[in-house]
């Protein structure tokens, strides 16, 4: 089985790669993990991970600037229903649009918009650090405890149009989406690759996931 981590120049590739490799190596059938932006490799992958840090518009443009990348993702994820996980901005990109530094369109795979967190002064922005999540019944959270802590760092959040697509939330200070899922497409606002043991559980569950 091949797992493709999409390389569009995002800074946290190494962390994501190492975390997935570490979890996968404990499986009876480890994945062949490749970091790639080659449309052919992406289309032959059995699972796809899209990490992302930085501004929404910059990430989107970086993806569009790699020839065939966006199209190959559409074929794999939308047409062939390959299990997909977006992380942080990689998850926000699933939305219809974002208001970060202007208005940018996203992939439009999960309806909703990416908006700035509004909070009183004592809540610093970015929302940075370990915060607990409440999740609904979903494979991604197998063996996780309600109220477990995950590592977040973001100033914008995914406001889902349909509540059923939000499968986990955190509070800062309002309820904000911590994870999304629609069919074969999931994503986390937190960083599983930086969330120690809890994060490894999420990665393990994604590797195990058969939507």
């Amino acid at each position: 089985m091949n797992l493709a981590i999409i390389n569009f120049g995002s800074g946290n590739l190494h962390s994501v790669h190492k975390a997935f490799e570490s979890v996968s190596s404990d499986l009876s059938n480890p994945y062949n993990i490749i970091v790639t932006n080659d449309p052919k490799e992406i289309q032959s992958a059995d699972k796809i991970v899209l990490p992302g840090v930085g501004a929404f518009g910059d990430c989107k443009n970086a993806i569009l600037n790699i020839e065939g990348l966006h199209a190959s993702l559409e074929v794999s994820v939308i047409k062939n229903k390959v299990p997909f996980m977006g992380i942080c901005v990689g998850m926000q990109l699933l939305a219809d649009l974002s208001y970060e530094f202007g208005t940018h369109s996203g992939f439009g795979w999960i309806p909703g918009e990416v908006r700035r967190i509004t909070s009183p002064k004592e809540y610093k922005i970015p929302h940075m650090g370990w915060n607990e999540i409440t999740f609904s019944d979903h494979k991604l959270f197998d063996n996780c405890e309600q109220g477990s802590d995950f590592y977040f760092v973001h100033s914008f959040y995914f406001q889902n149009q349909k509540s059923e697509h939000s499968i986990a939330t955190t509070k800062y200070p309002d309820q904000i989406t911590a994870a999304v899922c629609k069919e074969n497409i999931c994503g986390t606002q937190f960083h599983p690759e930086k969330s120690h043991i809890n994060g490894k559980k999420i990665i393990h569950n994604f590797l195990d996931w058969k939507p």
Partner: peptide, 8 residues
């Protein structure tokens, strides 16, 4: 911050 994201 623009190139790598504020979080970095």
């Amino acid at each position: 911050a623009k190139k790598y994201g504020s979080s970095t």
